Simulated assay, not measured.
Amino acid sequence: MTQPDVLIIGTGIIGLTLGYELLKRGQGVHLLEQSTVGQGATRAAAGMLATDEELPEALHELAALSRMLYPGLVQQLFDETGLGSGYLEQPFCLQHANQQMTFNPVGQVDPRLLTQALRSAIERRGGVIEEETTVSRIERDERAMIGVMTSRGLRTGRQVIVAAGRGSETLLGTIGTTIDTFPVKGECLSVRLATGRLDRTLFGDTVYLVPKADGRIIIGATEHVGDESTTVSLEGIRSLLAAAINLYPPLAEAVFVEAWAGVRPQTGDGLPYLGTVDGIDGLFVATGHHRHGILLAPATANVLADCLMGQTPRVTLDGFNSRRQEESR
């Protein structure tokens, strides 16, 4: 097997977008996935490209870059593969107590469709995706990265990006690097209205409603800190439905479609880890995006690709480095 320029651990939205961006820049890419492509937190996401009202201030610059990049990304994916990503721009309504604020149209994607388009584009450009392959440790010597040890043997690469969601913490621990993450399980469901349609995203205190191009409405999401299961509870669905109907009464007559759960990687300070790892040449991290992975994926790919290629990223990554907890102490 030919050694690629970059090994990427994880094929959620972050790993896939990174792979595609690097291939566009002429890099050889090999992605490793312990399960199947896009089946973790990415598949469970609603796909909102949320307004800054819903984001920590430190993420505003990254989010703005992502929103700017998204229309071009989904168009290029369609041109290359013929696959749509469910991109829409709709009004975004934020309701707290009895007050409602309506913002300019905000974009959204269908994460499952976007995953399919990214996979197809990566493979068309010669990228390798290896599924059902567990990565057990990172391999390096005193001089440089070697690669990673997997359930199928050693995989080598001149550079390695750890984008494995919750699994990133354990993997980085094999070289003595500590990051602070914890799981947050979220349950969601989808419905279809019996009549009429919802033409805007509604975001309440405890629930959001995201209408999709195919007529489904995504209702989410519960938050269970510390829970890494992917089962769906009746209580979770009941609480979401009650809040959703209160926010938008026509949902009382809607038809149930599906329910699911995913586990999002959160960090102690609420910010992702992005950039080089502890000054180790050739090793990078992109994890801990929590509920903003879909939104931040294009910007993450853009700035990480700059870092890998020795260029100055468009957004400074000082506040997202893997050493920040130690530095704050």
Score class of each variant (00 low, 15 high):
residue 83 L to E: 07
residue 195 T to E: 15
residue 38 G to P: 04
residue 315 V to M: 01
residue 253 E to H: 15
residue 27 Q to K: 12
residue 122 I to S: 06
residue 264 R to G: 08
residue 287 T to C: 12
residue 118 L to K: 03
residue 139 E to Q: 12
residue 98 N to F: 10
residue 221 A to P: 05
residue 106 V to W: 12
residue 203 F to I: 07
residue 314 R to C: 09
residue 137 R to Q: 15
residue 182 F to K: 10
residue 326 E to D: 14
residue 173 G to Y: 03
residue 213 A to C: 06
residue 115 T to S: 02
residue 158 R to S: 14
residue 222 T to C: 05
residue 164 A to H: 01
residue 239 S to F: 00
residue 57 E to F: 10
residue 170 T to H: 12
residue 245 I to E: 09
residue 135 V to H: 04
residue 162 V to Y: 04
residue 36 T to P: 00
residue 96 H to I: 14
residue 152 R to G: 12
residue 258 E to G: 00
residue 221 A to L: 07
residue 171 L to C: 04
residue 286 A to N: 02
residue 217 I to N: 07
residue 250 P to Y: 12
residue 60 H to L: 05
residue 125 R to C: 09
residue 141 D to S: 05
residue 320 F to D: 03
residue 14 I to M: 09
residue 175 I to Y: 04
residue 241 L to Y: 10
residue 138 I to V: 11
residue 166 R to K: 02
residue 232 V to P: 04
residue 103 F to M: 14
residue 81 T to R: 04
residue 260 W to I: 10
residue 192 R to V: 13
residue 172 L to Y: 03
residue 260 W to F: 15
residue 17 T to D: 08
residue 204 G to E: 01
residue 285 V to Y: 05
residue 92 F to E: 03
residue 266 Q to G: 14
residue 297 A to Q: 01
residue 315 V to D: 07
residue 158 R to H: 14
residue 152 R to T: 13
residue 90 Q to Y: 08
residue 200 R to L: 10
residue 143 R to H: 13
residue 27 Q to W: 02
residue 81 T to G: 07
residue 94 L to A: 09
residue 304 L to A: 04
residue 329 R to K: 15
residue 240 L to W: 04
residue 3 Q to T: 12
residue 23 L to P: 06
residue 192 R to E: 15
residue 145 M to P: 05
residue 218 I to F: 06
residue 155 R to H: 13
residue 99 Q to N: 13
residue 27 Q to N: 09
residue 84 G to M: 08
residue 37 V to T: 11
residue 70 Y to G: 06
residue 307 C to M: 15
residue 20 Y to E: 13
residue 248 Y to E: 11
residue 279 G to D: 10
residue 113 L to E: 11
residue 301 A to Y: 01
residue 312 T to W: 02
residue 79 D to T: 13
residue 172 L to S: 01
residue 75 Q to A: 15
residue 163 A to Y: 01
residue 195 T to V: 14
residue 320 F to R: 05
residue 166 R to H: 12
residue 318 D to P: 00
residue 112 R to T: 11
residue 309 M to P: 00
residue 222 T to D: 02
residue 271 L to Y: 14
residue 287 T to W: 08
residue 224 H to P: 00
residue 227 D to E: 00
residue 194 A to Q: 15
residue 66 S to A: 11
residue 138 I to F: 07
residue 25 R to Q: 04
residue 322 S to H: 10
residue 87 Y to G: 04
residue 69 L to N: 07
residue 19 G to V: 07
residue 92 F to D: 06
residue 274 L to R: 06
residue 218 I to P: 03
residue 240 L to Y: 05
residue 149 M to H: 14
residue 280 I to S: 05
residue 323 R to S: 14
residue 104 N to R: 15
residue 90 Q to P: 03
residue 2 T to M: 12
residue 116 Q to N: 13
residue 125 R to F: 10
residue 103 F to V: 00
residue 116 Q to I: 10
residue 97 A to V: 09
residue 76 Q to D: 15
residue 58 A to S: 13
residue 321 N to K: 13
residue 12 G to V: 04
residue 276 T to F: 00
residue 272 P to K: 07
residue 21 E to T: 15
residue 9 I to T: 02
residue 107 G to D: 01
residue 89 E to K: 14
residue 129 I to T: 01
residue 263 V to Y: 12
residue 193 L to T: 08
